[in-house]
Measured scan of single mutants.
Amino acid sequence: GQVHVGDTTYHFPNPEEARKFAEKAAKENNLQVTQHGNTFKVE
């Protein structure tokens, strides 16, 4: 799974890890998570 936060892309071998990371980043920054397959975008 990939997580895009601003201009930075994080790669995770496990989509579940990617999702947890995205949700945590979104919560900390008052942002939203959008999911496209195994790619998550925090914005």
Rank of each mutant, 00 (worst) to 15 (best):
G6W: 10
T8I: 14
E16R: 06
E16Q: 09
Q2I: 15
H36D: 13
E43L: 10
A22H: 00
H4D: 08
T34L: 07
N14I: 04
E16K: 06
A18N: 00
V42F: 02
E28L: 12
A25L: 15
Q32E: 09
P15H: 10
H4Y: 11
A25P: 00
H11R: 07
T34S: 10
Y10L: 07
Q35F: 04
H11S: 08
T8W: 12
G1T: 09
N14W: 03
N38D: 07
V42N: 02
H4P: 01
E17A: 11
T9W: 14
E28M: 12
E43F: 11
H36N: 12
R19K: 11
T8M: 14
E28D: 12
N38G: 05
E28P: 06
T34G: 03
K41Y: 15
E23C: 14
V42H: 03
K24H: 11
N38H: 06
K24D: 09
H36G: 03
K20L: 12
K24A: 13
P15L: 15
V5W: 15
K24Y: 11
K27I: 10
K20M: 12
A22F: 01
F21N: 01
A22L: 02
K24F: 11
V42W: 00
Q2N: 08
V33L: 07
T8F: 14
F40Y: 10
V33A: 03
H4L: 14
A25M: 15
E16P: 03
P13R: 09
K41Q: 11
A26G: 06
A18L: 00
V5A: 04
T34F: 12
F40V: 09
K27Q: 11
E23T: 06
N14H: 06
Q32L: 11
P13N: 12
T34M: 06
A26L: 01
G6R: 06
T39S: 13
E28Y: 09
Q2E: 12
K20Q: 13
T39R: 08
P15M: 15
T9L: 12
E43H: 12
L31N: 05
V33C: 09
G1V: 11
E17H: 06
Q32W: 09
T8N: 11
F12E: 03
L31K: 06
H36Y: 13
N29R: 13
E17F: 05
H36A: 09
R19N: 03
A18I: 00
G6L: 08
N30F: 07
T39N: 11
A22V: 02
F40A: 05
T39I: 15
H11F: 15
T34K: 09
V42P: 04
T8Y: 14
H36V: 14
N30I: 04
R19D: 02
E17C: 13
T34A: 06
A18P: 00
Q35K: 09
G37D: 07
N14L: 05
H36M: 11
R19Y: 06
G1H: 12
A18C: 07
H4E: 12
N14A: 04
G1R: 03
E17S: 09
N14V: 04
V5E: 01
T8A: 12
A26P: 00
L31F: 07
T39G: 07
E16A: 09
A22Q: 00
K20I: 13
Q32R: 13
Y10F: 11
K27W: 09
P15Q: 13
T39L: 13
Q32P: 06
T9V: 15
E23Y: 12
G1M: 09
F12G: 02
N14K: 03
L31R: 05
N38Q: 04
T9H: 08
K41M: 14
P15K: 13
K20A: 13
K24P: 00
T9C: 15
V33R: 00
H36W: 10
F40L: 05
E16V: 09
K27T: 08
D7S: 12
A22K: 00
H4Q: 14
E43D: 10
Y10T: 04
P15N: 08
G37A: 04
E28K: 12
K27M: 11
H36F: 12
Q35E: 06
V42R: 00
T34N: 06
F12K: 01
K41H: 15
E28R: 11
E23A: 06
K27H: 10
E43Q: 11
G6I: 05
N38C: 09
N30S: 09
A26R: 02
A25R: 09
T9A: 06
G6T: 03
E28H: 10
Y10D: 03
H11E: 08
F40E: 04
N29Y: 14
F21V: 01
H4A: 06
